[in-house]
Design a protein around this nucleic acid. Structure first.
Lengths: 135, 135
DNA sequence: TTAACTCGTACTATATCAGTACGAGTTTAC
DNA sequence: GTAAACTCGTACTGATATAGTACGAGTTAA
């Protein structure tokens, strides 16, 4: 099944939650308890989002996380990139692959990029704000 | 990394190859040797395509596989469905999941379907014929 | 100084992926 | 009628990815 990982699910959930209090630093533990999600795992996800500059953290008591920019400027593509490292609909489109190992004159190498671009465009268009608006 | 499985890669490769000789039954072993791919594994892929009616098989000497309909009528979405069983960009969109386990009033449940639809539309539009044309 | 936070790495169990192995059944050609 | 060239189907296996858990260190506010 072509699907996003649970980490990405969680990431989107964290971001939509933070988007509802854009100015406050929100405690992740509190969020985890409220939504009944595994805190330690969420923390990994949150750190990845910090790493990619989607959210900002503040350590110490009263700290937590908040968005680093407006929710409408955070696309689903940003999130997928932060958590999963990108999109590669065919193995020859992966960065790590130096060359398409499939076959000589592979039609996928020529044909898949356009699909990949269209999917990426979709993911780039949709933002965290859109997710919230659909609520 | 959001990506299609190697099985799906292979499936697309098989289909584009069959599309070049739409009327002939093509031996999979021959195809495997030519493209330097693992035959037994390909056979699994091919059977899945038969099962979903994308290709037709003929057993026995001189047998093999051929397309069951014109290449322009076989979409990438068809292939993904045959091999991976579909697309579920969020876990709550999966068929097996009876209910979204993430959280009460989850924004993903409301917001993700539209993304999923757009991605599916992209995959449905692109056909095996398109892949070949891009060659 | 302690309570409430985040940071970071290491570990683990399970599932999925990417094949391999093996044998059975089917059809054509000699 | 039998051998060669095919597909069919299930079972197994090793490697990698997923979905967490464990543990402790560092940081800030009250």
């Amino acid at each position: 099944m072509l699907s996003l990982s649970k980490k990405t699910d969680y990431a989107l959930l964290v971001l939509t939650t933070l988007a509802q209090k854009p100015k406050d630093y929100v405690s992740l533990r509190e969020l985890a308890i409220k939504k009944n999600l595994p805190y330690r795992f969420l923390a990994q996800v949150a750190r990845a989002l910090v790493h990619d500059g989607l959210i900002i953290s503040r350590e110490g008591s009263g700290g937590g996380y908040r968005l680093n920019r407006p929710a409408r400027k955070i696309s689903v593509s940003d999130v997928v990139t932060a958590i999963e490292g990108g999109v590669a609909l065919a193995s020859c489109l992966s960065h790590s692959e130096t060359e398409c190992a499939l076959a000589v004159n592979c039609p996928l190498k020529k044909g898949m990029p356009s699909i990949q671009r269209m999917v990426l465009k979709t993911l780039t268009k949709k933002t965290v704000a859109d997710l919230l608006a659909a609520k």
